[in-house]
Structure formats: C-alpha cells, structure tokens
Design a protein around this nucleic acid. Structure first.
Ligand SMILES: NC(=O)c1ccc[n+]([C@@H]2O[C@H](COP(=O)([O-])OP(=O)(O)OC[C@H]3O[C@@H](n4cnc5c(N)ncnc54)[C@H](O)[C@@H]3O)[C@@H](O)[C@H]2O)c1
Ligand SMILES: NC(=O)c1ccc[n+]([C@@H]2O[C@H](COP(=O)([O-])OP(=O)(O)OC[C@H]3O[C@@H](n4cnc5c(N)ncnc54)[C@H](O)[C@@H]3O)[C@@H](O)[C@H]2O)c1
Lengths: 230, 230
DNA sequence: AACCGCTTGTGAACGCAGGTACAAAGTCGC
DNA sequence: GCGACTTTGTACCTGCGTTCACAAGCGGTT
C-alpha cells in the first residue's frame, strides 16, 4: 500500500521534464517521429546522460539504437507531470504582472487554464482579461469551490499575500505559486513555489561583480562557437 | 586590502543573501537595530544554521550573544551582492510581461534601473513605461554602449530570443535574464539565468498529482512505446 | 572582576544531484 | 541469419548543498 512508489522523482528532474515536454512539442510540429537523447539534450540545454537518467525515472521509454518516439514520450511525460487534462487555476491580484499572466496564451497550451481572476480593486472588477472576467476578492471561496481549482497564483502586493494565501488554503487550494516577495507559511500538505525576480537580478549582479573583481579571468579567450539553433 | 576572496560563495547562498537583504530592509523600517539568526531565518523561511553559514561566507559579521546589527549587515550584503550603486539594465521586448517589469518600482529600490527599453514594434516605440521611453530595436547596440548596461533582460517571443541574446552579448552585456521558453546558448564568460513560469506551474501540477496518487498504486499503464507516428 | 546565559561561527556527517564510463539491447546492412 | 554499429539505461564516482551539533566569544549581572 504505502510502498507503492516504484521510484521517486527528484524535484529538479520534474522541472527538467517540463522543459523536455516543450521541446518535444516543437519537434512534433516539425514532423519528427524519433529523437536521440543527444539532440533532445542539446535543445533543452542539459547533459545527454542526465536527460536519460531523468527519463529513466519513468521507466524504460526509449528504444536502444534508435532513440525516443516523440509522440510516445510526449504522452508519457504529460501523464507523469499530471497535465493530461487541463488544470484549473485561480489568479489573485490582477495588476500589471497578474494581467500579463492571465493574458498569456502559453499557459493554456501547456494545460493550465485560469478559471478565476480575483482583485480587491473595484475598478478592476468586471474587466475581461484573457477570456475571463475579473471578480471581487470576496468571491474567492465560492470561485475556488465552484471550479475545484487546485492551483492558486498570487500576484498581490506583498503585505496581503499571506492573508490571500490563507484564504486560498482554507478554500481547498493545495498548490500555490507566489510572486510576492515574502515567505509564505502554509500548513503541511500544501506546496508553495516562489518566483522572486529581484533575486534573479541580484544573483546576476553578484556573478558580474565576482567576475570583475575575482580571479584574473583574462586567460580564457576561447571563442566558443555558439551552436544550437536548428 | 580586503583579503580578496579566499572563500567562494555558492550560488544557492547568493540567492538567499538577496532574500535576507530584503527582510533586513523591512526590519530597518521597523526601527530594529539588531536581529538574531533565528528571527531572520524565520522571516526568510530558511534554517537558522543555514543562514549563519550563508553569512559566514562574508566573514564574521555578527556579535555573539547579541545577534546581527541590522544596518551593518545591510551594508555588508549590499556590497557582497554588488548593488552598492544602481546597476543599469536593458529590457528587450516591451510586451505585456516586459511592460510589467519596466513599470515595477521594486527593482529600482533594490538597485536596478532600466536605462533602455527596446522593442521591434513601431507602435510601441515612443511609449513611456516606468519613466523610460521605448526605443526601436535597431538602437540596441548604441543604447548598451551609451549606458554601459551590464544586465540584459529578454521578454521577447521565444523564436527571436536567441538572436536578441546574441546582439546583447556582442554589444557587451555579460549577464542575461531570460523569460522566453528557450535554452539560450552563449559564449563562456556570459551568465544566463532563465525564468520559466510554465515549468513552475507544471512542477506544482506534478506535486499535486503525486499527493493524490501517491498512496494508491498509480503505475503508468503504458506498456510498450513502440508505436511510432508518421 | 568573575560568572552565566545567549548567540554566533564552524566542523563533520548525511543526502542528493550531476557527470563519466560501460554494458545491455535492438536495429540496420549484407 | 549474422555481425557490427548505434543508442539507451545504469552503476560508480565526485562534488555540492544542507543539516545537526558543539565549542568559542561576548554582554549583562552581581
Ligand atoms: N510587476 C513586476 O514586474 C513584479 C516583479 C517582481 C515582483 N512583483 C510582485 O508581484 C506582485 C504584484 O506586482 P504588480 O506589479 O502586478 O503590482 P500591482 O499593484 O500592479 O498589482 C497588484 C494588484 O493586486 C490587487 N490587490 C491588492 N490587494 C489585494 C487583495 N487583498 N486581494 C486581492 N487583490 C489585491 C490590486 O488591486 C492590484 O490590482 C507584488 O507583490 C510585486 O512585488 C512584481
Ligand atoms: N506574459 C506572460 O505571462 C508570460 C509567461 C511566461 C513566459 N512568457 C514569455 O515571455 C515572453 C514575452 O511574453 P509576452 O506575454 O510579454 O509577449 P508579448 O507578445 O506581449 O510581448 C512580446 C514583445 O516583444 C516584441 N518583439 C517581438 N520581436 C522582437 C524583436 N525581434 N526584438 C525586440 N522586440 C521584439 C513585440 O513587439 C512585443 O512587444 C515570451 O517569450 C513568453 O513566452 C510570458
């Protein structure tokens, strides 16, 4: 019963599986029927052996001497990632960032559908963004209950993010993607992922500074031929 | 003088240092003069011992028995992250996402200033977004050269991201933050960080499914992937 | 001035992820 | 039908990151 996990998939691997799935979609559009791990890895920007190890968590799904069947691997990855059917999501805080997300077509094509847009600003309520109408924040609980949304996205100001999070969790949402620059606290059983864009910029600034003031980096004139695009 | 860098700082630590810096800003606003590692760690959502180890990469900067001086630690982190002065950034692709970033006040307060906004759409050129005017993509090289921007942010469609990246690198940009869902290839000496929002959602979907289908047996019924398409 | 309690800083062990190298396996060519 | 080539799948190793646990150091107190 409880030991029914043949293999556990590391979270870092799951993130890469999603990238592979996107690359496969492009290959399928191009009419390709099979791919090798080397080609797939190059397109995804990872090591070929690492890619094979990632895929091996799903069990053998390639053919030795030939490669991976594009269509079959797509199905396998789609099932593994849990996006076989479209997943309903709610988005709270339809400001600049929230509106950009709600209006982005790339999510729907990846299996994510925003079924509820919520905002506290009366001026925003009623706006149509990305095929959905913005509703008042008071309806959060009823929207979550009515749509059985499993994923909540928070793009409100930081000072209200925790209270919005609490309401989402109380309403039954178990997965949260947070763009507000605060550490959310949630009960066990709820998954939170945080996207912190300021942190990304600061890491880049650090690497930049480290390169300048660090070691004598002038000894690497290797002009790497930027390969890839194809 | 400053004993150079006998210690190398792991990238994961750098990302957390940026979070600590933000928490410290909040504490400083609240009038606090000192903080303990436990309190700081709780606010940042990390382990107290890990936080102390992170800070120890910068050398001893706390007082035993008391804690860390808020102001002093802020200065130390600011210097370590290379954001003592405002860093000039260029943003390419002023669409929905790019406009949200350009108009976001949180970057300026963290030491990042968008000094160049570039877009290929003539209808966008001339718009003022976040105190800066959108300029035609042809001026990319001159803007980078004129502002000595060290960080480039790409929010264009995926199919042109690599070419935009190449032009940024050729113009002298050595740090790139990429929002387009493609793996950019760059020469050695250039740092790229990728933000992939679809991947974040898919990881959440996976965790959600794993929680539901974990205890009961959910062996994927796919027997043989032999069936090739086409 | 010396003790005591609190907090930092660090050493060591653990677990995990990534990379390399090799063996298994299946297909294509003859 | 058989050999050889290609590519997968995996075992081993190395390095990094995280956590636990403890000793060192400082302020406050008597
Ligand atoms: N815009 C960016 O580029 C950017 C970058 C990094 C981080 N962020 C973070 O993302 C979040 C949103 O940023 P933004 O630029 O879109 O801000 P914004 O002010 O444009 O949007 C915030 C929206 O949240 C709504 N809101 C406020 N309180 C609410 C509540 N209690 N319930 C529901 N909705 C509420 C507001 O009405 C507004 O529409 C912020 O936390 C910000 O720090 C944004
Ligand atoms: N909007 C989102 O929520 C979201 C989420 C995830 C990923 N993304 C990615 O971010 C990128 C931008 O998304 P968006 O929603 O802002 O798209 P968008 O279409 O609104 O904006 C793209 C902008 O890039 C400009 N552009 C096109 N070609 C260009 C070129 N060669 N040089 C300079 N500028 C050019 C366009 O004129 C447009 O203004 C896309 O790659 C998208 O996949 C967006």
């Amino acid at each position: 019963m409880t030991q029914s996990r043949p293999r556990i998939v590391p979270e870092a691997t799951v993130a890469r599986l999603a990238v592979y799935l996107r690359v496969l979609a492009g290959l399928a559009d191009g009419g390709r029927s099979h791919v090798s791990s080397g080609e797939l890895a190059a397109a995804a920007g990872v090591n070929p052996a690492g890619l094979r190890k990632d895929l091996s968590y799903l069990g053998p799904c390639g053919v030795r001497g030939v490669g991976y069947a594009v269509a079959g691997l797509q199905e396998r990855l789609t099932a593994a990632l849990g996006v076989e059917r479209s997943r309903p999501c709610v988005l709270v805080g339809i400001g600049r960032l929230g509106a950009a997300l709600a209006d982005y077509a790339g999510f729907a094509s990846r299996g994510f559908e925003f079924v509820g847009l919520l905002d506290a600003d009366p001026a925003r309520v009623g706006d149509r963004v990305g095929g959905c109408t913005v509703r008042p924040i008071e309806e959060l609980e009823s929207v979550v209950a009515g749509t059985r949304a499993s994923i909540g996205v928070i793009t409100t100001p930081a000072d209200v993010a925790q209270s919005v999070c609490d309401r989402l969790v109380a309403a039954g949402v178990r997965s949260i993607l947070n763009f507000a620059p605060v550490a959310l606290s949630v009960p066990a059983g709820v998954d939170v992922r945080k996207v912190d864009l300021s942190v990304e910029l600061q890491v880049l600034a650090f690497l930049d500074q480290q390169r300048d003031g660090g070691p004598p980096t002038v000894v690497v004139p290797v002009p790497v031929p930027a390969g890839g695009a194809r």
